[in-house]
């Protein structure tokens, strides 16, 4: 167990909520990547990644999220993000990835969105 990053996975109907907390950086991002790969390998293609507990996200983390999105898309799935923190949203804005990911202010909102 890595104290810098923790990942909790639960099912909500046909969706899988991946709640991430801690810091997603060059050191911890591979762990998140493994979780996303495992989920897709296990047939979970409708993902909601909850970033509300994340207090740091860098470009390596963005790469992992993009990789996850590509994996679920290959199975006609979806990857929605939950994030209302401006410090985290900023890197999505700078990189233009706000156009690539559906980003919601809460898990409830993400779950009620079209997959």
């Amino acid at each position: 167990m890595d104290p810098d990053l923790s990942v909790a996975i639960r099912s909500e109907g046909d969706r899988t909520v991946v709640a991430v907390s801690g810091e997603i950086d060059v050191y911890t991002a591979p762990k998140l990547r493994e979780h996303l790969i495992d989920l897709v390998s296990g047939g979970h293609y409708q993902l909601v990644v909850d970033l509300e507990g994340v207090d740091f996200l860098d470009s390596t983390g963005l790469g992992v999220l993009v990789g996850g999105l590509k994996r679920v898309r290959a199975h006609d799935g979806s990857l929605h993000l939950v994030c209302s923190q401006d410090r985290i949203l900023k890197i999505f804005r700078i990189t233009g990835l706000t156009k690539v990911f559906p980003i919601h202010a809460s898990v409830t909102e993400a779950l009620s969105a079209d997959a």
């Binding site: 963005l62 790469g63 993009v66 999105l69 590509k70 990189t95 990835l97 156009k99 690539v100």
Partner: peptide, 14 residues
């Protein structure tokens, strides 16, 4: 780069 991020010919890492 971001707008092409989902194209298949781009590797997973940015």
């Amino acid at each position: 780069v971001s707008s092409r991020a989902l194209d298949d010919d781009i590797p997973e890492t940015l």
